[in-house]
Write a protein that binds this DNA or RNA. Sequence first.
DNA 1: CCGTGTGAAGCTGTTCACAGCT
DNA 2: AGCTGTGAACAGCTTCACACGG
Lengths: 222, 222
Amino acid sequence: MAFKRYIPVESISELTINRLSVYLRCLQQLEHEGTTTISSQELADRFHLNSAQIRKDLAYFGEFGIRGVGYNAAQLREHLVNILGLHEERRVLVVGAGNLGTALSHYSGFNTGGFRIVAILDSDPRKVGKRVPGGLVVESVSDLTRIVKERKVHIAVITVPSNSAQKVYDELVEAGVQAVLNFAAAQLKGHPEVKLKNVDLKIHLELLSFFLTHASRLASVT
Amino acid sequence: MAFKRYIPVESISELTINRLSVYLRCLQQLEHEGTTTISSQELADRFHLNSAQIRKDLAYFGEFGIRGVGYNAAQLREHLVNILGLHEERRVLVVGAGNLGTALSHYSGFNTGGFRIVAILDSDPRKVGKRVPGGLVVESVSDLTRIVKERKVHIAVITVPSNSAQKVYDELVEAGVQAVLNFAAAQLKGHPEVKLKNVDLKIHLELLSFFLTHASRLASVT
DNA sequence: CCGTGTGAAGCTGTTCACAGCT
DNA sequence: AGCTGTGAACAGCTTCACACGG
């Protein structure tokens, strides 16, 4: 572990972790622009963040700045990569070769910066054997357990219809994946030892719809 | 407006609105199973929510329950549809016919329950004119303004590369869209009168990576 | 008697403001 | 002199617990 951890991980909020990802993106952009040193205030002004919050978020993991100066951009980026565990390759399996699964399997964000999609599965025999954009060939969901074990899958992404999501989830856990990202609108249950993150894309549209309906004066967010 | 609003919309948190979407999904499932009446406690047990929070969230918008009994599932669903503004059709435009844009344009969640994708645009002449799964034909981004006006687009979804996101966003605002859902990893700025929601899919993978790295004892989350 | 609706309490997350280091 | 790191104040969100109405 390249950084000192000051407090137990369990007590760090997901909000903080998500912001670390944001800071990482900001630093990558700044470095790309040639910035070498940046203060929390500059970072905040540039990306509409709060400087105290940046300092507090970082303080959970160590002292990365120099008082009176600021942070070394490259160094801080490296620290964030380590904190987020992006220095080691994470092998990702996509289950469900529908629209979303196919898109994610060759979405650049899912094949860079520490992540690599190692397989895409589907239960539909007509899809199995077809090559998806990005180069992977769809494999059968009946080989799920074998593939998870052989390719040492860390993270599984579920993009199957909601009525088969629970079954897939149970198989994934049984096969030994360590974390699951679920895009199906289903309430998955039963395995507290595997980190599960549910993402509902429709919720964002419904939020916007709410604001359109009630807009007297609107405000930007996120 | 079919419901009474008790407090100003501006003071209702996005967290509450997002939960209303969740409650709506739960009710749809319950109705599908034949449930007609449900208490906040049952709803909470069934979907791992907090009953007081359900009641409080609903209380922002009216009194929908019957004391001593609970809520009528169909009625409450209808109220939520009204609150979220899903009773009127929302016309959605997707800008960017890459992997994600194409997937979203025929993702069922984006073409049901009040939403309808009316066009998908791209700047690449090789993509323009091609039919994407779902039936839409890719149109040129140079027709953006005309399409937004003619088809009365309410919501735009940005799935273009991050370096062209700001340009697209500015054009969309200029053309008169009312809300924007941005999937590009870019800090969009300049138009507080248009509701903007940023979604970063990679952030979820990075969160999972963090937990894999630091897992001593893991916990499930949403 | 039971479950909603809601003030009040408790908790979590954010921001302030400054001591301390460079 | 200036910016980090951080306790303390503040704000916002969640949960409790019970009065009230059906």
